[in-house]
Design a binder for these strands. Sequence first.
DNA 1: CACCAGGTCTCTC
DNA 2: GAGAGACATGGT
Length: 275
Amino acid sequence: MEYSISNGQIIINNAEHFDPKSIIECGQVFRYQKIESGYKIFSKNLFCSLIYTKDRAIIVSDCLPYFIDYFDLNRDYGDIESALSGYRNLGNAVSYGKGLRILKQDPFETLISFIVSANNNIPRIQGIIERLCAACGENMGDYFAFPTAERLAAKDADFFYKLGAGYRAEYIADTSQKIANGFSLDLSGMSTPEARQRLISLKGVGRKVADCVLLFGYGRKDVFPTDTWIEKVYAERYGENGKDAAKMADRLSGEFGELSGYAQQYLYNYARNHK
DNA sequence: CACCAGGTCTCTC
DNA sequence: GAGAGACATGGT
């Protein structure tokens, strides 16, 4: 990715591998606001503005190094697209999603966000997370940070239920308490299956949520989160209806290996948005 | 009114 | 270990 930094801004002049709408609105991040010229994007206790025109994007933030990592700017998506072009029945999805990138988000925020996402729709997920931040997150002046595990652990399930989290309220409470009480989210040194099992040991985290957290929160690309949209992709790709989401995920990640996370994101985006 | 949404949990056999 | 239901809530 070619970018430059000046005056506290990141400037991306070639937008071929940086399409803000695809990146922000493809369901990997829930905490953002549309503004006239782009987006405000919130992560952890930080935020940036992403301003863009047809062939240029500018990221403004007090914490540029964090957002260079967040937008994965040092990775060449041209390499990824050409590697993916070797796979059958993927060309449409990749060209449709050109400019998409996988964000590197905060692990705890990603964990709670995807616990909320289970069997839920995106507008409602965003609303629940927004209320969670407003009620529990640190007041940063113009906005609220995503709450730390300690702040969430100070509330109980009933509190999250009243925020509208539904039956996921007790998952949020239980998981936050475990983490505040020392359950480490440092998964470095673990294989992906080991890391996945560790996340699945938390309440409200099954295979799909764990894989989303590994992909969007830890940058592990050898996972293939399998939700209801990917089930449709699976049926079309292999000519049969899968029954078990974990088995579908195994087969898909078996086919795509280290490129699984990228392939999944292009296919999900295409399945959900194209006509 | 049904059915679906970035599924997981619990209870059976 | 596989299979069936329950589950909050809002959108279509």
